[in-house]
């Protein structure tokens, strides 16, 4: 039960996807493999919920141990508030049924939308914008021409950065950049992704055939 059933499920799901790649003629086999994909969409939806569930569990655990308790409480309050607003009012810009609006918002503006644009969007966007400062510091401290290889890396990086500047065409940097992107970059990335594809394809085959089982965890 614990070992065999998951291996059988993996095999069926994997083979269904491979079958659908080759057969799409309306026969039972192709219809079945196509239906399995609809199941995949639904199960992926549950996985999304699982992600949120995991955050709640880990946060509760940390809060119980007293680690940053006030912050963990804030996290949980925000999580449940956003979730309930979304579940209650829906996810559209305007609330569909007006009775839930309490007359507070013009044009039935959805508070869930308000949270997205005024809390989530600025926080998410700013969080990643911090990286500009770290890359500045790294450019100053870490990038050293210690070898020919490092020299090539730095030279192409500088040309690409110059080439992105709109007026760099005056010195022809945009043309050189275009060549770098289309020749050495394409050659190396093509080789990298060909290698990766070979690795992933063989790993996938091992998973489907039940040879690779580490994703099922270690015990029993």
């Amino acid at each position: 039960m614990r070992r065999t059933v998951p291996l059988v499920i993996t095999f069926i799901a994997g083979v269904a996807m491979i079958v659908s790649f080759f057969v799409n003629d309306g026969t039972v086999l192709s219809v079945a493999s196509s239906k399995v994909k609809e199941w995949g969409i639904i199960i992926a939806g549950f996985a999304v919920v699982l992600g949120t569930g995991n955050i709640v569990r880990v946060t509760l655990h940390k809060a119980k141990r007293g680690e940053d308790r006030p912050f963990k409480i804030v996290l949980l309050v925000c999580l449940f508030a956003t979730m309930f607003l979304g579940l209650f009012f829906g996810i559209d810009k305007e609330i569909r049924s007006t009775w839930m609006n309490f007359g507070m918002f013009e044009r039935e503006y959805n508070p869930f939308y308000w949270i997205y644009f005024n809390i989530q969007l600025p926080l998410g966007a700013t969080m990643f914008s911090l990286l500009v400062f770290y890359i500045t510091s790294a450019a100053y401290r870490a990038f050293r021409v210690r070898s020919i290889e490092a020299g090539i890396l730095l030279t192409t990086a500088v040309i690409v950065m110059l080439g992105q500047i709109p007026i760099s065409s005056a010195i022809g940097a945009d043309k050189v950049m275009a060549w770098i992107m289309v020749v050495p970059n394409v050659a190396a990335k093509r080789a990298i992704f060909m290698g990766a594809a070979m690795g992933i394809a063989s790993m996938s085959l091992k998973i489907i055939l039940g040879i690779e089982r580490s994703y099922l965890g270690g015990d029993s």
Binding site: M17, K37, G40, I41, A44, G45, A47, V48
Partner: peptide, 8 residues
């Protein structure tokens, strides 16, 4: 949700 499954 589903990414590759959905596209396929």
């Amino acid at each position: 949700p589903g990414g590759a499954v959905l596209i396929s």
